[in-house]
Amino acid sequence: MNAPTLPVISMTALESESGLAELRRAASDVGFFYLVDHGISHESQQDYLRLSREFFQLSVQQKQSVDMIHSPHFRGYNAMGSEMTAGRLDAREQFDWMNEEQAIPDSALSQPWQKLIGPNLWPTSMPGLKPSLTKLQDQLSDITVNLLQRLCASLGVEAHALDHTIGKQPYTHAKLIRYPGQHRPQQGVGAHKDPGYLTLVMQDEQSGLKVERNGQWIAVEPIPGAFVVNIGELLELASNGFLKATNHKVESPKQGVERYSIAFFMAAQLSATVPVLSLPDELSARASGPSADPNNPLLTDVGNNVLKGRLRSHTHVTRRYYCQQTARTLLANSFAQLPINDICSECTI
């Protein structure tokens, strides 16, 4: 087994004060940690990763039948070179799915983020994919909601302090990801922070994920059965910067090697506004406010915070569905103060 390069947190230890203290240290000092004893066995994880490999082994035509270009809600398949991070193309292919919902007609939209709401795209050639990934989505949703409540408790506030932002079900976004081998080191996915509350990553045996710490990039070696967890921007906002959303990236594997992972992102409901928690004086004194990036400002309204990332990452979908006059007007009203003219050169807002 690989040696841990991040703190290791046991889910079963989070009922104790010492366990909560370890969780608080990991989330505030690093913003990343391994999670064990979470209830999904290593064997089950391997089954999901095998299912992921099966999807990516489908023919080009079968995968293109669920290409994201068919979804104004940013669901479905992305071939190599279809997603951008930090302005550069990523060397990976992936399949995205989110909460299964009914789309809102354009005529009824009052906020641009409402266009994110809609159904997923599922390949007819893999009828077992939808029930399997929906089950995984439910399992990971339960884990992240529980973990969010434990994090609140670790901060000395009521465990359910953020439950009202989640409602009956959190907003979730998940990806099957394949990183093909490259002749030379390449951006599998560029340096970034995640926009939600929490992210869980299921890794295969190949390394590649790296976390920025004290100006250095630390490799997050896979540990069998452990999820990698990172704090998202919404938790950094809610804790006034006490908890850290940390830059991370993935480097492509070497030629002849493939890397598979499954990433799960949990956030508040898109309609929610994230509150700033009233931390105890000792912790509040150590909260320096959320990080500020003029090119990527954090927004307390969840829907727009999520949407700006989608618009920048998948510009081909943006051009097809968000450049019409109705969508452009909504975007201009919501993002008037943001530098988003990098989204689409053909329809600068």
Rank of each mutant, 00 (worst) to 15 (best):
L51V: 06
I69V: 14
Q182L: 11
S141T: 15
R259A: 10
E54M: 10
L147Q: 01
E93Y: 08
A191W: 05
L237I: 13
L162G: 01
N214L: 08
E233C: 04
L49E: 02
S107C: 12
L331P: 06
E83C: 02
L23Q: 00
G39I: 04
G303F: 05
H173L: 09
V276D: 02
G309T: 09
K115M: 08
C344R: 07
H183E: 15
T273M: 07
R319W: 12
D194S: 02
L89W: 14
F227T: 02
L133S: 03
E101P: 01
Q255W: 13
E212V: 04
D293P: 01
S71P: 06
F227G: 01
I343M: 12
I9C: 01
Y179C: 06
I166Q: 00
I231A: 04
K254V: 11
S107F: 11
R312E: 09
R53P: 01
P4A: 09
S239K: 06
P294N: 12
L148N: 03
K168D: 15
D293M: 03
N2E: 14
L147W: 01
A268E: 07
R24H: 11
D163G: 03
G81D: 13
S125W: 01
Q57G: 09
Q139L: 13
R312V: 04
Q94P: 06
A327Y: 07
F265H: 03
H160W: 09
N247R: 14
P7A: 04
D142F: 06
R178G: 03
S288T: 14
T85L: 12
Y321E: 09
A13F: 07
G232H: 01
C323T: 15
V30D: 05
Q186I: 08
D342H: 14
Q325C: 11
H164V: 05
I343G: 03
A285G: 05
L14T: 01
G31D: 01
L331A: 08
T12N: 12
E346T: 11
Q111I: 09
L121Y: 03
Q269W: 03
H192R: 02
L283D: 11
Q102A: 13
L133R: 00
P297E: 08
Q187K: 10
V250T: 05
L331I: 13
S291R: 15
R319D: 15
Q206N: 13
V36S: 00
G225Y: 06
